[in-house]
Amino acid sequence: MSIQHFRVALIPFFAAFCLPVFAHPETLVKVKDAEDQLGARVGYIELDLNSGKILESFRPEERFPMMSTFKVLLCGAVLSRVDAGQEQLGRRIHYSQNDLVEYSPVTEKHLTDGMTVRELCSAAITMSDNTAANLLLTTIGGPKELTAFLHNMGDHVTRLDRWEPELNEAIPNDERDTTMPAAMATTLRKLLTGELLTLASRQQLIDWMEADKVAGPLLRSALPAGWFIADKSGAGERGSRGIIAALGPDGKPSRIVVIYTTGSQATMDERNRQIAEIGASLIKHW
């Protein structure tokens, strides 16, 4: 067993022997301040990774656009098919120029040779490549099948209805392509620590998230040296922004954090800054 596999296998073990965790309302004060600064709703939840206990939450059962955070769930569904012998990570998928959609920095470079399922998941999570996500959605049967996968996990809230990039439209009061912070946090925890996926697939999923290259201005910008984070960000229309993450000190994750916002007129930089400040408060009061 590799060191990384050992780390993920012992996530519940280490967490069980940690000192009790206590909620700190100071972080919620910052979440509410972010709402004021952005002029928009902000949803927040913080779960203990081992027990699933909610440590703090704000608007945990209000719907927010998922945006690209759905790509972690998508690759979880792909990995479940791999575990069941219905898919192979090494299978190569070929596609054409007509398949390319807006923001496809990886797939646009491989029109000639195609990409493997493993490479597509890596591109979808680490670079948020939209064509990679659409190609992977095709392998599982489309958005409705991802929703069905989530329902089978016990998540009857999260739903995907459309493809990239239309799913980022974020129309107010439109339930399409949305989740709730509580539902997303619980589902992410199941994917990373539950028995739904094999140990190898859980490790692969967290490795992809740990290698995320496009979430630097968010929670990662607030992390002290030595902290662990595996995350996936999302951005959408109407001032929408979000991030889902597993993080913790001492090089291992111990909490799940989900943050979503929508309806702001603020710039992307300002949305990023507010999420980073929430992260800084979380870490300060850990």
Rank of each mutant, 00 (worst) to 15 (best):
V101G: 07
P217R: 12
R81M: 06
F58I: 13
E164A: 01
Y103K: 03
L38I: 06
P253D: 14
L135Q: 14
D129L: 01
A245V: 05
G194Y: 12
E87F: 13
W227T: 01
D129Q: 01
S221K: 06
G242S: 13
M184K: 00
M66A: 11
I256E: 00
N134A: 02
L47P: 01
E62K: 06
S240M: 04
E35T: 04
S122L: 13
G194R: 11
A245W: 02
D113L: 13
Q265L: 10
E175I: 14
I259N: 02
A170H: 11
R241T: 08
A77K: 05
L74K: 00
L55S: 11
L223N: 03
D36I: 10
L38Y: 09
T198W: 04
T198A: 09
D177F: 01
S221Q: 13
A40T: 11
A280F: 13
C121N: 02
A34I: 10
P143M: 05
D36Y: 12
G85D: 07
K232G: 01
T147A: 07
K284L: 12
R92I: 11
G279T: 14
K190Q: 15
C75N: 03
Q97R: 12
E169Q: 10
K144L: 11
F228L: 06
A124M: 15
P181S: 04
L28V: 12
D231W: 03
A235T: 07
A77R: 06
E166L: 12
G242F: 00
T69W: 00
T147N: 06
L192W: 06
A246V: 09
V42P: 01
T139I: 13
K232C: 01
P224V: 04
D113S: 12
L192Q: 04
D155P: 01
G39S: 09
R41Q: 06
A185E: 00
H24P: 05
G279I: 05
G154P: 05
E169F: 13
L188H: 03
W163T: 08
L196P: 10
L28R: 11
L111Q: 09
N168L: 02
V257M: 07
R238G: 08
W208V: 03
I243P: 01
E102P: 07
S80G: 11
R41A: 12
G216V: 14
A170M: 10
T69F: 02
A123F: 03
P253A: 07
D48N: 06
W227S: 00
A148M: 07
A40R: 03
A225Q: 08
G90Q: 12
S240K: 02
R159L: 08
E237A: 12
E210I: 15
A276P: 02
P172T: 10
M153N: 08
R159V: 13
W286Q: 04
V106T: 15
T107V: 10
L135S: 04
P165T: 06
G142F: 01
A34Y: 15
A245P: 01
T112F: 13
E87C: 10
L28Y: 15
